[in-house]
Design a protein around this nucleic acid. Structure first.
Ligand SMILES: [Mn+2]
Ligand SMILES: [Mn+2]
Ligand SMILES: [Zn+2]
Ligand SMILES: [Zn+2]
Lengths: 143, 143
DNA sequence: TTATGTGTGAAAATGAATTTCAAAAGCAAG
DNA sequence: CTTGCTTTTGAAATTCATTTTCACACATAA
């Protein structure tokens, strides 16, 4: 929920001693109103259309704060741009990425996550995060 | 085996009508003699130390040929550089990446691959490739 | 309101990767 | 071998996402 995310960012800011600024509010509003997996440039252009004063450096800086605050996750696909998606606390999903139309299908699989834990344990490895991307052709691009 | 990879690259070159050049031979030798997950810049510097005439553009170009030929795979971790690793035909593995010391542990898990197939099938998706990276701390970095 | 340090935007800088282009090298035909 | 045509190469320039710089604007506490 959007209001909860705003609250989450406010408490993150407070805890970190960050100041509350008009720009961060705007960037958060726009980010929360977008679809998933938006690139920084795309988000910047949307914002600039309405708020021409906002600079791209601020958008870059602020998206990193969102990641730190746990509201966003970096998604690196295979175009040269860093993308961000919304996450809710404790939520996780992985991606089917269509190499034909660049669409993305999200999925969760508890069994895989469990197997990952076993693999890590077997190597004395402590998991912090993971990513899994399956590349191929989506149903419409196959036909 | 190194000789087999050279043969594989030769037949790829022949099939594609590529010329056989001293530079490509050198780059292939150096690539095959490196450890896994080397960045283009790293490989270029190693080569340049012995063959100062070789340019980095050629190294970039040639590594892409190796991927096309099926000898190498691109590995994108979270430093800003593209890395390449050796692959044998039909082989696949995934990575545990230590965020402490940047070391990489490789693993294979048939059950996960199977589950990936099921997930893809469920979405009418035809898999071409996939990647899975688990980030965290390796055994030595934990202590 | 003022003082202090943080945040911002424009512009410059960075750095990986790609492109350009003239010169060099491979290769097939003669 | 030589010739002629084409691909490949290296140096330098270019691209493009991202980061940094720095002067100025702004948030906040006193
Ligand atoms: Mn997603
Ligand atoms: Mn590997
Ligand atoms: Zn598609
Ligand atoms: Zn480690």
């Amino acid at each position: 929920m959007i209001i909860e995310k705003k609250k989450a960012f406010n408490s993150f800011s407070a805890k970190k001693g960050l100041r509350s600024t008009r720009q961060r509010d705007i960037i958060l509003d726009f980010f929360l109103s977008t679809h998933q997996h938006i690139s920084v440039e795309e988000l910047y252009l949307k914002i600039k259309a309405i708020h021409p004063g906002i600079g791209n450096a601020t958008v870059y800086r602020t998206l990193k704060l969102f990641v730190e605050a746990g509201l966003a996750r970096e998604v690196l696909l295979h175009d040269g741009q860093t993308r961000y998606e919304h996450i809710m606390a404790g939520e996780h999903h992985d991606h089917l990425v269509c190499t034909g139309c660049n669409s993305i299908i999200e999925f969760e699989n508890e069994t895989i996550e469990q197997l990952q834990n076993e693999i890590a344990a077997r190597h004395g490895f402590m998991i912090q995060s993971h990513k899994m991307e399956i590349y191929g052709l989506c149903a419409s691009c196959r036909s």
